[in-house]
């Protein structure tokens, strides 16, 4: 009997995947804000870095979710903002902020060397885990660009089907960057995939008054566990998403392989 219960429990846990609640992981040391463009659409991201963990997520998604789930008054504000995105479409600053990875939350744990991705795109909640990817970079030390007052060097790599050109600074010795990019001897402040597929640029860096590195699950959603290969198969066919839920340009995903 006990055994059956145990089995049942394991089975339920497996079927249900993760349903963790929002919780603090560790204090943050640095927070970088990146803006992204993809064709006409822009979005903005936060890379929050702690000692052994870091996270990367869309600022606008975070803002809307936090307003929606904080209290009824704040959710009313979020609702009105959403209505306004329809109302004044010519005002680009009020348009819906989207990108191909706008609905993804990335967490890296350096102690286990694992990266976990949570995707809540089109009311489908999926998650997968992989080893923190390592890109093989080609560094060219002769080109220099100043971003946010910091001297940056160029590096290029072919990563999962796209050619990435990034600018990193040794003035911030953290081998991280936007999205899954990293592994350079300094923080990546600018990154471009396939010339114009998507661009990220750091627009601010903060080291004070930081929120801790936090696992967010405002809506207490359950995530379906899968592997990256499966996830990719679905993401590379974005047009299969129902029209009503579609907020993305009908573009291939950031990872092609």
């Amino acid at each position: 009997m006990k055994r059956t219960n145990m089995l049942l429990f394991t089975l339920t846990a497996w079927v249900c995947g993760f349903a963790q609640e929002t919780h603090v992981i560790e204090p943050a040391i640095l927070e970088v804000r990146y803006d992204s463009w993809q064709e006409e659409h822009d979005d903005s991201y936060i890379l929050r870095i702690g000692k052994t963990a870091n996270q990367f997520f869309s600022y606008y998604r975070y803002r809307t979710d936090s307003l929606m789930f904080t209290s009824e008054e704040t959710s009313k504000i979020a609702l009105q903002e959403f209505i306004d995105t329809n109302d004044r479409s010519e005002d680009r600053s009020k348009r819906l902020k989207v990108s191909t990875i706008g609905r993804e939350w990335l967490y890296q744990d350096l102690t286990t060397d694992k990266l976990t991705l949570y995707s809540d795109y089109a009311s489908a909640y999926n998650t997968y885990e992989e080893d923190i990817p390592r890109q093989e970079w080609e560094i060219s030390t002769d080109s220099v660009m100043t971003i946010l007052g910091m001297e940056c060097h160029k590096a290029t790599t072919m990563f999962r089907g796209r050619l990435w050109e990034v600018w990193f600074t040794e003035e911030l010795p953290i081998s991280l960057g936007p999205w899954k990019l990293g592994g350079l001897p300094g923080l990546i402040l600018k990154a471009t995939a396939d010339k114009d597929f998507i661009k990220f640029t750091a627009i601010s860096i903060k080291s004070e008054h930081l929120n801790p590195v936090t696992y967010y699950n405002w809506g207490n959603e359950k995530y379906y566990q899968m592997d990256r290969a499966k996830f990719l198969r679905y993401k590379n066919r974005p047009r299969t998403i129902p029209y009503a839920d579609k907020v993305l340009p009908a573009k291939p995903y950031i990872e092609l392989e």
């Binding site: 089109a122 009311s123 489908a124 999926n126 899968m226 679905y234 129902p242 839920d245």
Partner: peptide
């Protein structure tokens, strides 16, 4: 019901 992999919603 959403099965993203089968692109069924």
């Amino acid at each position: 019901y959403n099965d993203a992999l089968k692109a069924l919603h």
